[in-house]
Design a protein around this nucleic acid. Structure first.
Length: 139
DNA sequence: GCCAACGTTGGC
DNA sequence: GCCAACGTTGGC
């Protein structure tokens, strides 16, 4: 199983919106970036991801699970763009903030720290564990 | 609200 | 194929 991070502006699509979809989940659509798309193509059903709120909150607010592999993005006719489906898994008891992540040497290589604009990113098992502990998540 | 970083586009 | 111009994103 691999780990990922999904970033969203809460004003567009928030953790609460994701939770409201329940186990049926929802397409992670609207990605128009090749790097992000390529990461989604690598995902398998059962992979886990952090759900990150950008802009005002800047924190990991919960975990999600990949429930469908990459398929055409239904919001466009452009065949280049694909997306996976994800469902909300568990809310963070204490959201792990960007400030906290940046202050920890062990997380200095995270994509979130070094390429903040990439909306879909890989996360290493070590990074996953550290942030889960902070946020009170059960992995 | 500003600006740096990054990706994309289009003219040559 | 290069590069300047432009648009978008996201942290501050």
């Amino acid at each position: 199983m691999r780990y990922w991070l999904f970033k969203s502006e809460p004003s567009t699509w928030s953790w609460e919106d994701q939770v409201a979809k329940g186990d049926a989940g929802e397409e992670w659509d609207g990605v128009r970036n090749y790097q992000a798309r390529n990461f989604m193509r690598e995902m398998a059903v059962g992979d886990r991801g952090f759900f990150y709120h950008s802009q005002k909150e800047k924190a990991v607010v919960g975990t999600v699970e990949v429930i469908a592999e990459a398929h055409p993005d239904s919001t466009t006719d452009d065949e280049r763009w694909e997306c996976v489906d994800i469902k909300a898994l568990e809310p963070a008891k204490t959201p792990a903030t960007l400030e906290q992540i940046k202050s920890d040497e062990r997380l200095s290589k995270m994509v979130l720290v070094n390429n903040s604009r990439l909306s879909v990113q890989p996360v290493t098992p070590d990074e996953w564990q550290i942030i889960c502990e902070w946020a009170g998540l059960n992995r």
